[in-house]
Design a protein around this nucleic acid. Structure first.
Length: 771
DNA sequence: GATTTTACGTA
DNA sequence: CGTACGTAAAATCT
């Protein structure tokens, strides 16, 4: 059925979707089905009344198989076919007739028809002018159908619609009035720095640099003292400096005076910009008042954090990121100015959400993070060489064995070739990946789990031979890296890298040496990382940290008592008398802990691991390599032994239903947007994981602030801190670490303490218990 | 050459 | 239907 636009002819807002779906086709009216109901919700959240809007679609008939591509002649959907052309013509006439103040484009199809562009993720939330009806302003946002698949798109869409409501009160695109000074002379730049330093009207300055790789040389330096006023200085063109040496000295002196003055600075991802400025020019930023990336992460944890996205939420500006390829100066100045505007918005947002303490906690991590990024870790080249040769040997050995067995010379790291070998040539039963939902298509897999299964089903040695080969080649990838001239490697810790307030670790762009992520180095080759000459590594890690938090959160008195009694005991005593896995087995099998065999303890350990975050029988099967029947039996036993776990899950579900927000034990809130079981499982994990992650980071920051001058922190591994010191200082350093890491957290009028144990070693791989 | 998929290392 | 990450290599797209 044809579905036409409906609504009052004098509407201020014209909403354009893609095409009718099944419900629209039956009723002949736009946005009636699930997407329509969601649109109503979205509009009401933005204070827009649907009956006051014109609502329609670009296409007027439901496409075959609901695939919009049938209305285009090319796969990129840029050339409409005859019917689509006709419909776009009708839309043009309707807009011209109604003269709305704003057209809201829902999704890519509407965006392309109205503005001739694709890329809803880049353009949503930005002010555009229609190419179909010039002079009419368009605000693109997500189509409701996309939100139904991806709930994280909900929040930006509501904010876009609010922006549209504001814009619907007047005609025309607001002019983006800015005072941008691009390419000032040396004197103008120095004068601007002095103005920023001395003028009482300036109380905050945003800063953004553009750099050239390799070397992170600063090519453009941009600053702004309001959303409108910015200046951008070009220092290098191509590879040629733009100023003489003396001029550069003057420029950097002016910048240095400003940045070290204590004036409030705003940056987006300060740990990058501030580190580059420090490393290349020795200038420290005295007062980083706001990192807009940290502000975004604190307020809207699961949203994208790049400047373009945050601007689309916080500001009403046209897209500017495309300028980076055309006009770097304007691009840089707009980055600085928009960062300023975002900071103004986020200051209020932090206040509105009541998350200042949490925001401040992450801001406080910046110093430690910058230090860790610039300091790095020393590599023992002899040890690396040896590991490299050993690994090469085992690769060759494994490959030779495979060649003899299969009489083929294929790439055993190629999933496709392994599939052919195992499932076609050998006719082994095909193994499938676990699906997110039963509606998903089954996908074939050749991963380690599949190899384990095939090994037990077929009794062939082949799957295990393949695994052995893959493990060895994987290990080699961790050994192939460059070090700098000091023989060191570096990583970049990202305070906004996770949704659980842990840090993530990734490539350090400023010092691009090493295996990039230092948080996933295999145990087997950790011996190649060493302390500096004459020093030892001290490792401090929280003992059974997440299990302790779970015990308190589920209010399991038996477990709480175990952890309380075990606190401060030696490792041997803990293992013997206060061991959570022994307790688990004891409760499961109903026999005293002292009689638990090591195998029973192992089962207890694996089950706790699998089930604390709501794993199922498939996980247990994989962990224990047992039958489905056995796994189900063990799960029953585990549940019997942990009756409070189920009510913890129920409590979490309840909290989610009420506010969609969970708060960890340190008061950090996180809103959850998803739907279904995936949402619940990540919600179950949130409190313990984020509490421990934050607890460690708070301790690390305190340790750095108090002892950072004397003791070097080397690594952060989520629940462990590694430092280096002279061997004679180990007892005192252990004392410092204990002081900073062990502190109580209140849980339901009780105080939870998490113990720390220590190891000392001459490299990261050979660490010995220290008591 | 750019982007997506698969697999796998860590806590 | 463990969770949380980042990266290398292969596969696929354009």
């Amino acid at each position: 059925m044809i579905v036409n636009t409906e609504g009052p002819s004098n509407a201020n807002i014209f909403i354009v979707g893609e095409a009718p779906g099944v419900d629209e086709d039956i009723t002949g009216r736009p946005f009636i089905g699930a997407s329509g109901r969601l649109l109503d919700t979205l509009l009401s959240q933005a204070g827009i009344y649907r009956h006051e809007c014109l609502v329609g679609n670009v296409a007027r008939e439901m496409p075959r198989d609901n695939k919009i591509g049938v209305y285009y002649l090319d796969s990129k959907k840029t050339i409409p076919n005859e019917s689509m052309k006709r419909w776009i013509g009708e839309l043009e006439m309707e807009i011209k007739k109604a003269k709305p103040n704003i057209v809201i484009a829902l999704g890519n199809t509407a965006l392309h028809a109205l503005c001739g562009e694709h890329g809803i993720d880049k353009l949503r939330g930005t002010m555009m002018e229609s190419t179909l009806v010039p002079g009419v302003k368009v605000l693109p946002t997500n189509h409701p159908a996309r939100i139904l698949r991806d709930w994280s798109a909900y929040f930006p869409t509501v904010l876009d619609l609010r922006k549209a409501k504001t814009q619907s009160t007047f005609k025309g695109i607001p002019k983006d009035v800015r005072n941008l000074v691009i390419n000032p002379s040396k004197d103008e730049w120095v004068a601007y720095c002095e103005f920023l330093l001395n003028d009482s009207s300036v109380n905050k300055i945003s800063l953004d640099i553009e750099t050239l790789q390799p070397g992170s040389h600063i090519s453009w330096f941009g600053m702004a003292h309001s959303f409108k006023d910015a200046m951008s200085l070009q220092l290098i063109k191509g590879r040629t400096p733009q100023f003489t040496e003396n001029e550069e000295i003057e420029i950097w002196n002016a910048i240095s005076n400003l940045m070290e003055s204590g004036k409030k600075f705003i940056m987006h991802n300060a740990s990058y910009d501030a580190s580059v400025i420090f490393l290349n020019h020795g200038i420290t930023t005295k007062n980083i008042w706001m990192d807009t990336m940290i502000a975004g992460h604190t307020c809207w944890t699961e949203m994208p954090k790049n400047l373009g996205f945050m601007a689309s939420i916080c500001l009403t500006v046209p897209a500017w990121k495309h300028l980076s390829g055309q006009d770097m100066g304007t691009y840089n100045a707009l980055d600085a100015a928009n960062t300023f505007g975002i900071a103004q918005f986020m200051e209020k947002e932090i206040e509105r959400l009541g998350v200042y303490d949490a925001y401040k906690r992450t801001m406080n991590q910046l110093d430690s993070i910058m230090m860790l990024g610039l300091q790095g870790v020393l590599v023992d080249e002899d040890a690396r060489e040896k590991a490299f040769i050993d690994t090469k040997d085992s690769i060759n050995e494994a490959k030779e064995a495979l060649k003899v067995f299969t009489k083929q010379d294929i790439n055993y790291n190629s999933p496709k070739q392994i599939q052919k070998l195992l499932y076609v040539d050998m006719e082994f039963p095909i193994q499938y990946k676990r699906r997110a939902s039963v509606h998903d298509k089954r996908a074939i897999t050749t991963d380690e789990g599949a190899m384990k299964k095939l090994s037990s089903i077929t009794n062939s040695p082949l799957p295990k031979m393949i695994t052995k080969y893959k493990k060895a080649t994987k290990l080699l990838t961790f050994l192939k890296f460059k070090t700098d001239e000091k023989g060191r490697v570096y990583t970049s810790y990202n305070p906004t890298g996770t949704d659980t307030y842990r840090w993530s670790s990734s490539e350090n762009i400023i010092l691009p040496f090493g295996p990039k992520n230092l948080q996933n180095i295999p145990q087997k080759i950790r011996n190649i990382f060493t302390p500096d000459e004459g020093k030892v590594i001290v490792q401090a890690d929280y003992v059974q940290a997440e299990a302790v938090v779970m015990a308190y959160l589920s209010n399991d008195h038996i477990q709480k008592k175990l952890f309380k009694d075990g606190f401060g005991k030696t490792d041997a005593e803990r293992k013997e008398k206060y061991d959570i896995h022994r307790l688990t087995a004891s409760l499961m099998y109903r026999i005293p802990t002292k009689d638990i065999s090591s195998e029973q303890r192992f089962i207890g350990k694996k089950l706790r691991h699998s089930l604390n975050y709501s794993g199922g029988p498939q996980v247990v099967i994989k962990e224990l390599e047992c039958s489905l029947h056995e796994a189900k039996k063990l799960i029953e036993l585990f549940k019997r032994a942990n009756p409070l776990l189920e009510s913890y899950y129920e409590g979490i579900k309840q909290e989610l239903r009420q506010t969609r927000t969970l708060t960890n034990l340190l008061g950090r809130k996180r809103r959850f947007f998803g739907r279904g079981d995936d949402l619940y499982r990540s919600a179950y994990a949130y409190k313990p994981q984020s509490t421990i992650g934050e607890m460690l980071n708070l301790s690390l920051v305190n340790f750095y602030n108090k002892h950072g001058e004397d003791v070097d922190i080397l690594l952060q591994l989520h629940d462990a801190i590694y430092v280096q010191c002279l061997e004679k200082d180990v007892p005192i350093v252990v004392g410092y670490l204990k002081e900073e890491m062990i502190w109580p957290i209140k849980v339901n009028h009780e105080e939870m303490l998490i113990d720390v144990d220590f190891k000392v070693g001459k490299n990261w791989g050979e660490m010995e218990l220290y008591e």
